[in-house]
């Protein structure tokens, strides 16, 4: 029996992950509700009816980041509690395929959350129209999501088999995500500026892409050590 192809293993793992979520709907509705609630909180906390520029960008991204933390904590829950790790480790499949599948799963969650959270944000708080910011925003979202997904997949695996995983997950991932926040918030701010929309600081996006790449490599190099027993 030969080693199965990585691409087919990744597809199988991803399919199982998505099926699990779509069957139980354990995470997505919570993330949607959380982000809308967070916007309401910001409205009252800041006492502002509409936001633009830096403030708008910060509120949106902090909300997305915290929503991501919710799902990073649960990313490996079914594997840890129902023996999925052992089942995977007993197969000749490449270890890295689990990491790739988890990154893709997180990307799926983030995209699904943003599908609701971004329009909700535009409706509830954003002062300039979303339309003019959208093309640029999609690019920033993609790069930001990749960073969150890579770090989330690594830190989730680091925290899941510890006794205080609910606390360790956020404590480990938030400092690592600050550079991501810094880049995406900085890149989004000009998009949300009613005066001169459109100019994204490219330097920030390149930096972010490099950060994503570096942590992708680190996650790939270290993931195996987290799976062993």
């Amino acid at each position: 029996m030969s080693t199965p192809r990585t691409s087919s293993v990744v597809r199988a793992l991803l399919e199982a992950q998505l099926r699990l979520e779509l069957r139980t709907f354990e995470s997505l509705p919570a993330m949607w509700l959380f982000s809308v609630t967070a916007f309401v909180l910001f409205h009252f906390g800041l006492n502002e009816d509409s936001l633009s520029g830096n403030l708008a960008s910060g509120v949106l991204w902090v909300t997305l980041l915290l929503a991501a933390i919710l799902v990073i904590n649960r990313l490996y829950l079914a594997d840890a509690e129902q023996g999925g790790f052992d089942g995977f480790l007993l197969s000749p499949a490449d270890r890295g395929s689990l990491l790739i599948a988890k990154v893709l799963t997180l990307l799926f969650y983030l995209a699904a959350v943003e599908l609701v959270a971004v329009p909700a944000f535009a409706l509830l708080l954003l002062e300039p129209s979303l339309g003019q910011a959208l093309p640029g925003l999609l690019g920033v979202l993609a790069l930001g999501d990749l960073g969150i997904a890579v770090i989330g997949a690594l830190v989730g695996a680091l925290a899941i088999r510890t006794q205080s995983r609910d606390l360790l997950g956020p404590m480990l991932s938030l400092p690592l995500l600050v550079p991501v926040l810094l880049c995406v918030a900085g890149a989004t701010a000009p998009l949300f500026d009613p005066a001169h929309a459109g100019a994204i600081p490219l330097r920030l996006l390149v930096t972010l892409a490099l950060y994503d790449a570096v942590f992708g490599l680190i996650a790939f190099a270290l993931f195996d050590f987290l799976l062993e027993d």
Partner: peptide, 14 residues
């Protein structure tokens, strides 16, 4: 090798 342990190593929701 095939390991049949205490845990079924299967996802309950699937």
């Amino acid at each position: 090798i095939g390991l049949l342990g205490h845990e079924p190593m299967l996802y309950r929701e699937l």
